[in-house]
Design a binder for these strands. Sequence first.
DNA 1: CGAACACTTGACTAGAGTCAATGTGTGTGG
DNA 2: CCACACACATTGACTCTAGTCAAGTGTTCG
Lengths: 228, 228
Amino acid sequence: MRSYNARADIVRDGDQSHECCLVLTGFVHRSKLLKDGRRQILSFHTPGDMPDLQGLHLPVMDHSVCTLMRTTAAFIEHAAVRQITREHPGIAEAFWRDTLVDAAIFREWMTGLGQRDARERVTHLLCEISLRLRGVGLATEAGFSFPATQTDIGDALGLSTVHVNRVLQGLRGDGLVRGNLTALTILDWQGLQAAGDFDPTYLQQRPKEAKGGETSGHASLGSAQAVH
Amino acid sequence: MRSYNARADIVRDGDQSHECCLVLTGFVHRSKLLKDGRRQILSFHTPGDMPDLQGLHLPVMDHSVCTLMRTTAAFIEHAAVRQITREHPGIAEAFWRDTLVDAAIFREWMTGLGQRDARERVTHLLCEISLRLRGVGLATEAGFSFPATQTDIGDALGLSTVHVNRVLQGLRGDGLVRGNLTALTILDWQGLQAAGDFDPTYLQQRPKEAKGGETSGHASLGSAQAVH
DNA sequence: CGAACACTTGACTAGAGTCAATGTGTGTGG
DNA sequence: CCACACACATTGACTCTAGTCAAGTGTTCG
């Protein structure tokens, strides 16, 4: 297990990876840097995620994994993972499925980047972050705390920081949210979903358990703990 | 094996898929439609590709697979594929790897959609199409023929048809290419790569064989034949 | 306290979209 | 063989969303 400060690289673009990373506490993002410094954030990850599982079969990284805040992560040698997946096809399928959900989220983001305007992109991302944090018990319908700056949001959505700021002000003005990413209150969840044309199917989340029963269904790839 | 006309759906968004599609001849794309009709093209596929391999473990489609021209495709029941992957972990890994390359291409496209301007996006896509067609023997360095309209390119790159048209004229004016997608001559491959900041690593293509020797390396998932 | 970082605001610019019309080539039916 | 329809490509004029630049204002933290 290793510990990282905020804004630290866990794996770098071009690295030859020989182990998989499992986020235990904290948050990370994956990103690609262009030569001139432009940055595209590709995904955000919560505790329980394995953000570089793809390194198992594509050993040279085409992007970096970086922390958003102080983060701890466990590492498992590829050799060990490979042995497990060889011996237990069910686990191999669960891992494979995990990378497929990853790709489904990429497709949704591509659609946003290509077709949606700034307001739709921002609200869509807020909805996604909310649901994913709720999925690991780090948020409620009322709001969440996520350690991304407006610049991070801009780099994820293909928008400038200034424009992200203005869109957020618009959402506050329309009574949809209050506060900032680091302490966001959702005032109108329905309105937020509508503004972002948000349909959560692509997240492939297990259906919410009714009361307090144990979640059934597909393998869950790790246990999560809130840090903050 | 089934045959499709141009602009036909092979699989539709929302379908519960129970078989995998292998493109034999022709070309297809995958796309998502928004409620108001906006369309994001997510990928293009050549003969030999299995564009909906992900359906194996995410059984409800989050996008459609459509033909660009008259296309023939073979279909394999998920049950059969699953049995093969259970019995032959090496094949499972090859399929898994295929979906991971798919995701790597998504990441590159996301980066383009979020960070690159119109000219960079168009040239980058031209480079990608060229290399991928060459990879299956359907093009040379001199150029290619690809049955996408300017509207298709626009929907893939998040640009309007009119703007795609103007960018292409710019590239012709600068002596980089001649003609149109359906009959493109590449006049300056180096210049095209430079204009699109194109680095083909993400395609994970096997290194070009030296003379005429058999390709070694990773499993190739099908054999291709030119149509057109 | 002061540096660093994030957020906010205003004024101006520019890249890309929209609208509408006009080519241009192809195929088809009479 | 021609007329017509259709799909795709092209052009011009105008608009607008989002970017850029530059200057603030917090706020945190060593």
